[in-house]
Computed example of a mutant assay.
Amino acid sequence: MIVRIMGEGQVKLDDSHFAELNKLDDELLAEMEGGDEPGFRRTLGALLDAVRSMGAPLPDDSLEPSELILPAPDASLEEVRDMLSDDGLIPS
């Protein structure tokens, strides 16, 4: 799966990593619903770090369609809330 982190680029990520990413996504969703800004920041960073470490970056000139788009590391709670589906950022 091709994942885009807004403002950074694309990463090719094996589907086997999605169980771990979904745990972080669920945690992020709970923190957003509870208005926990410090928890939200920490978990968003952990989610993006996990994608970066588990995936392989695509070249900057690659034009692959992204199957999943994640917010930039400095995205606000409100910006991320606008990106959410019922399942969070990562579909189950």
Rank of each mutant, 00 (worst) to 15 (best):
L21S: 09
D74Q: 14
K12L: 14
L68D: 11
S76A: 05
L58K: 13
G88A: 14
R4A: 09
E20S: 13
A50I: 02
R52M: 06
A19D: 10
V80G: 06
R52C: 04
S92Y: 04
S76N: 06
L58H: 11
A56M: 13
S16H: 07
R4M: 09
L84E: 08
G45L: 08
E37T: 11
K23S: 07
L77A: 05
G45D: 07
D15W: 01
T43K: 05
L68H: 08
D25C: 13
M83R: 13
P65Q: 12
I69E: 15
P65S: 05
G35P: 15
L13S: 12
F18T: 09
D87Q: 01
N22E: 07
F40R: 03
L77M: 14
I2N: 14
R42W: 01
A75D: 10
S85F: 03
L68W: 03
A46L: 14
I69F: 01
L63M: 12
G88V: 13
G7F: 02
D49M: 09
D87K: 06
L84T: 06
M6K: 15
R4I: 00
M6D: 15
M1T: 07
T43S: 08
D87R: 04
S92V: 11
S76M: 02
E79I: 05
E67P: 00
D14A: 15
H17G: 02
D15N: 11
I69W: 01
R42D: 05
E64W: 01
D15F: 05
G88N: 12
G88M: 14
A72M: 05
